[in-house]
Design a protein around this nucleic acid. Structure first.
Lengths: 229, 229
DNA sequence: TAGTGGTCTAGACCACCCC
DNA sequence: GGGTGGTCTAGACCACTAA
């Protein structure tokens, strides 16, 4: 059986694992490896390129390929639509719009979203339930100038995150996670006591450098966010 | 200038963005695209393969290539070594070992780490400071059977996460994030008040399916975890 | 079973950048 | 300057799977 690029990746990983090639080590060039494995250089190239993309190797022209001295540790978290997330867990999803109003952007939001003074934003407040449990309180702001259609949308009938991804499918998103103590208001919505810990997710959607939407999402105390790799 | 796979990726993204190919649309086959772009099929293949890996396209043999109906949203969080993270922020890192002891694994940990009854674990408790600020309290358990060298290591002189990544550079890691209220003990270490919200990270390091280490890390209330994509 | 993507090859040229 | 990875090609065979 001929060597595939999968085999080569596995082989290289194996040699790194058994410390044959320890971190920092300089690997043979592609030509040499191709000869050793008895395959074309392109095949070796693909294997090495993917290992580099995965953070295992470091490649530089002329300098060659080295094992990364310190492994890049990263964790990936998927953000499915809230409805899908809840239904995937086998629970019944329920959505309630608490409030929707068009207002002039308050100062803190203007700074955060880079909105000029006096410009309007759409403020949404909504609850997401899993079965009978209060799951998530969403406090979202749309920049109407950057997304005019938001102004004419009824968010009692549209779940904000679904609507957003349908209308700007390729927006980038910044995510910030932190813990905070529930205020009286947040506690009421989430059926907790004031001061209870809440898991907060701040999400800023951007497109071509413009900030389209900012959402602060409060999760119930029991929420666990789990890595997907 | 000839078309590179970069050009093709950009072109395809462009057509998707302008809704020329809307989500769910079936794209032409590789041969057709190669002809359209005036390049080899391998070049088109690479472009499409990468777009699929990035979550934009969905490819199936015989069925062809489609634009993902719902864009996969994911955020990536880097876990640098705690020392690097603090020093990268321009602050002085300080590490203090609070406690290190070899004990029989308690029941809850045995279940969590799949350790047989009566087997020993190494329990580490340590503090990480950024300048004068208490930054992180680490509560870590090593499965000694799975990692014998841990038993003979002095963790006053070795920072656990660095030591771990040096000794098992290619361990996989599960990460779970949540918020909780500080106990009296945690509050004391982190210089907070009991009940204050803490951001908790549970990290389980694994190798070939064996659980090597479990760490529960408590971050100070002000901590923010930021996505790196 | 036929069509589509998956992969490999042998050769070529090029861009980058360390020495 | 020269060696290394980056990329492209034209052609080929294969594996999977929808029809």
């Amino acid at each position: 059986m001929r060597k595939s690029y999968h085999d080569i990746k596995a082989h290289v990983m194996e040699r790194i694992r058994r410390d044959d090639w320890s971190p920092g080590t300089h690997l043979p060039g592609e030509v040499a490896l191709a000869e050793e494995f008895g395959c074309a250089r392109a095949t070796v190239n693909r294997a090495m390129r993917e290992l580099a993309a995965e953070g295992v190797l470091e490649r530089k022209r002329k300098a060659g390929t080295r094992v990364r001295p310190v492994l890049k540790r990263k964790a990936e978290f998927q953000f499915a639509h809230i409805r899908d997330e809840i239904e995937a867990a086998g629970e019944t999803y329920r959505y309630v719009l608490v409030d929707q109003e068009r207002v002039a952007a308050p100062g803190w939001l203007r700074a955060l979203m880079e909105i000029p003074k006096g410009r309007p934003v759409l403020h949404i407040c909504a609850m997401h339930y899993a079965g009978t449990r209060a799951f998530q309180l969403e406090d979202r702001w749309f920049n109407i100038d950057a997304m005019p259609p938001a102004a004419h949308t009824c968010f009692a009938a549209n779940i904000p995150d679904q609507w957003l991804s349908q209308n700007v499918p390729f927006a980038d998103e910044d995510v910030v996670l932190f813990a905070s103590n529930a205020t009286q208001q947040v506690a009421d919505y989430l059926n907790m006591s004031p001061g209870d810990a809440v898991f907060v997710v701040d999400r800023t959607a951007m497109m071509d450098g413009r900030k389209l939407s900012y959402a602060r999402v409060f999760h119930h105390r029991d929420y666990r966010m789990t890595s997907s790799l």
